[in-house]
């Protein structure tokens, strides 16, 4: 506070001082009121600004949150699409690989015979393939590794009066392919076929219609749907074995006199 000025006469000086003091007090009060008003405005402004900032920040956060959520949603959708595409591609590739593997299996057993155009007909071409198949099977039985195109099989007796079947053992098949046929060539050259309808891994028993117990088998093959021989059956299937194991009454010995 500013000190009151000194005057020449005390009475008039006091009055002047009081008057000055009152004036100053009024001015100070007005000033204080102005200051209070400005401060309050400032506070209000700051508060308003802070409110605005806060409000706008929340909006920004909300916007960011929404943007981020949108981004994540799009990303998830894209990821889902990519995953689906990848899954489809993987499944397609696996199907193609499996199909290729299945297509290649016969060729792995017996290489395709290809040549330039020639005059050989289907019968002669079959004979050529059978030669190669026999040759590879021969090498297999001689112990040469890696050329196996043979399968083991056994002749099975059918129902009484019915036809025989061929039991195909497991090796070397992973599974039987739908469309393969079992071709049974009899001693006289007649060929019988049995459908290999099962696609699971052998052993399977393939019924062969019209394969009578008394007939002898000369050759046993598994052919693809085009009739190309893929595998050659060996050993036990070609023998009439079940007749010897069928239970039945013992044959009576011939009378000694009959020999005379």
């Amino acid at each position: 506070m500013t000190p009151a000025p000194r005057t020449r006469s005390d009475g008039s000086a006091n009055i002047a001082q009081e008057r000055m003091l009152k004036k100053l007090t009024d001015e100070l009060g007005g000033l204080m009121k102005g200051v209070q008003s400005s401060t309050s405005e400032l506070v209000n402004a700051v508060t308003a600004l802070a409110d605005r900032v806060l409000r706008e920040s929340e909006e920004a956060r909300e916007l960011v949150r929404e943007d981020r959520a949108e981004f994540y949603r799009v990303l998830r959708e894209e990821n889902a699409l990519v995953r689906e595409a990848a899954a489809e591609a993987a499944e397609r590739h696996s199907r193609e690989a499996l199909a290729a593997l299945q297509d290649r299996r016969p060729d792995a057993a017996l290489p395709m015979i290809t040549s330039v155009a020639d005059e050989y007909d289907a019968t002669e071409r079959l004979e050529q393939r059978e030669l190669v198949l026999s040759y590879m099977a021969w090498l297999t039985l001689l112990g040469r590794a890696g050329v196996a195109s043979v399968f083991l099989a056994q002749r099975m007796g059918g129902a009484k009066g019915g036809s025989d079947g061929i039991q195909i053992y497991a090796a070397p098949f992973e599974q039987m392919v739908y469309g393969w046929t079992l071709v049974v060539t009899l001693d006289g050259g007649k060929a019988l076929t049995g459908s290999v309808t099962k696609t699971e891994r052998p052993p399977v028993v393939v019924p062969v219609p019209y394969l009578r117990p008394e007939t002898q088998i000369r050759r046993l093959e598994i052919c693809d749907e085009r009739g190309n021989p893929l595998y050659l059956g060996i050993v036990t299937a070609v023998q009439v074995q079940h007749r010897q194991s069928e239970p039945g009454p013992l044959e009576a010995a011939r009378a000694y006199d009959e020999d005379r």
Binding site: I113, T114, S115, Y120, E124, L131, S134, Y135
Partner: peptide
Amino acid sequence: DLVSAFVRFLELGYFKPANVNTMYALNSTL
């Protein structure tokens, strides 16, 4: 090994007029 199997097939009469080309023209193990 090779000549053994081949001569055996010759001896067994596997080669016919229709399939002699498997020895030179057709892509095969033989």
